[in-house]
Design a protein around this nucleic acid. Structure first.
Lengths: 339, 339
DNA sequence: CTGAAAGCGCTAACAC
DNA sequence: GTGTTAGCGCTTTCAG
């Protein structure tokens, strides 16, 4: 059951290796008869081109690398799906590596991927990545890169994001305008990442628009974005009796808040309305179900790959294209945690 | 910034390509001085071996394929993590592809992976895979394969599983013995997969041990294992006033049941105790929190890779080893959905 | 329309 | 100790 090679096909057909190769690639200068002979023998011997040889010859792996901050995460799992599906359509396979939100791991994994000659890289930055030289170096070495979701504005490449600012603005606005909240608290993520900054900004913008004074004391910071952190912060929220709405940076936090408030006998949404972010599966399972912002992971994955593909192709043709940033729309999903 | 090759190193040092190659591989017949010269130049020119050429020469990709039935699934996300980490330690990278529980997709994806000459395959069977020829063929073509989680007993290869029967037995036993349930219902998955069969069997075994007659009418079948399905089945459960315990095939179903029961004003765990399966993140977030069986995805991923590695190595040395099935222990996690 | 030949970059057996 | 050489299997240019 040893692998059949071009050479074997050639010998079988009394042709040269080159001719067989061209026949398979449907070159116009090969006769139809030859092409047919080749194709039937290919089926008969179940010939599969040796991808190693193709890779070496073409200097491309038809593999891309995908860096994910957290695999165990509904949103990112959907990213994986979107990317692999889009990639598959173009004949690419995907190697997924997790940075675990660590700058060091991110660097290490990018290096691993590059050593294997991936044709391009899809990266969402780790929360504690605050220098971008490692990324910029890779771009300067002429590797196609697309940033998605957690990006940095200071890196010049294609990007695909959601409009965090607007999404946060809409969520906060909903609490103020539709629910009628007078005092909306915000739970933000760690200081640095752009997403944290943008959602915080959106929150502030909504307050401003409705002439509600910004109150620093009701902006809570969660370091690790866990359910337990949410529960803990619920304790702080209760202390301020005026708070009647909470916009949390992510669903996990929001779910923790929900739990913490309920355990303290606060009724939701009657006393406090809560909105999360991401539309995880769990938002349908909390009691009450959680209002949230839908973050389209699957679509983002597809877009990210398509941009990368564009970049790969343009580099192949030695074109340099202007880099775009695609913003995907989000949707406010209203469930039972908001009045 | 063009890539440095062995040849360039050789020219720079007035050595032959072969010598440089051997120096890098630390062959004993190369002098220390030469090795040092080579190594310093390697650093200076930032030489990286061309993996394409290495692959072609060694006929190995140092990549393995991982087939996952559902990426958006806490357990399987942990599998990905475990596999990639273990693989990385041995210098392997991982390509993840989802079968989406479809036999056709599973076959297609295996084919894709094989075309790319992956060095081995880690497979969890799709729910609707009921013929195994595609897998057996691959094994006969001498490709290393390890099955994990959803396996088939009729395939001869290394496997890593949990003892579903025992886990289900323990969960049911807990409901009977510790909680004191008299009438425990079971929600099973689709008919075919081994996991469904085993968990159902474990449930029955526990009943038998405690001399509780098996009652077919309180075994409900969920086709798609969704939250919504669980909610629906809750409706059926309520109709039988005697039911005081539920053992569900998976957490998502159990969470749905919880919600359905609560919506119908059944108090949990006072009137009915519920146990799920898998220990998803969401089990900590339902109200009440959900008792469940912890399924160690991360560990299973590590074990699965290690078995595959063993298989790869033994084939390299033309050894044929006896295939083992590793059973990982599960743990009953008791939270607030059980009395 | 087909064949010959070079070469992608590396490894390892063999020669000196 | 080091160099030489023969591939690994494929693609593509050039010659005929």
């Amino acid at each position: 059951m040893s692998k059949t090679t071009l050479k074997q096909l050639a010998e079988n057909l009394n042709l040269s290796v080159g001719t067989v190769s061209k026949a398979l690639k449907d070159y116009p200068d090969i006769s139809d008869i030859t092409k047919k002979r080749v194709r039937t023998l290919v089926k008969e011997l179940n010939y599969k081109p040796n991808s190693f040889a193709q890779n070496l010859r073409n200097q491309e792996s038809k593999i891309i690398g995908l860096i994910i901050p957290q695999v165990v995460h509904h949103f990112f799992a959907n990213i994986i799906l979107g990317v692999t599906e889009a990639a598959e359509r173009k004949g690419y396979l995907v190697i997924v590596l997790e940075s675990a939100e660590s700058y060091e791991t991110e660097k290490k994994h990018l290096d691993l991927l590059l050593k294997r000659n991936v044709d391009g890289l899809l990266i969402s930055l780790a929360d504690n990545t605050i220098k971008y030289n490692h990324i910029i170096d890779i771009i300067n070495q002429d590797h196609p890169i697309v940033l998605y979701d957690k990006i940095s504005k200071s890196i010049d490449c294609h990007k695909v994001v959601i409009d965090d600012k607007k999404a946060a603005y809409n969520a906060t606005k909903f609490l103020i305008k539709n629910v009628g909240c007078k005092k909306v608290a915000h739970i933000r993520g760690p200081l640095k990442p752009q997403t944290t900054i943008d959602r915080f900004q959106g929150y502030k913008n909504a307050l401003k628009e409705y002439h509600i004074p910004f109150d620093k004391s009701i902006v809570f910071e969660s370091k690790d974005l866990t359910f337990e952190d949410g529960e803990k912060i619920a304790g702080d929220i209760i202390k301020n009796k005026e708070i009647d709405g909470v916009f949390a940076f992510t669903d996990l936090l929001a779910a923790g808040v929900l739990k913490g408030l309920l355990d303290a006998e606060v009724s939701i949404p009657e006393e406090i309305s809560v909105i999360g972010f991401s539309n995880w599966l769990l938002t349908k399972m909390t009691s009450p179900t959680l209002s949230t912002v839908d973050q389209p992971g699957y679509k983002m994955g597809i877009q990210a790959f398509n941009l990368l593909y564009e970049e790969i192709m343009s580099r192949k043709n030695n074109l340099r294209i202007r880099h775009r940033t695609i913003e995907l729309p989000t949707e406010l999903i209203i469930r039972n945690s908001t009045k």
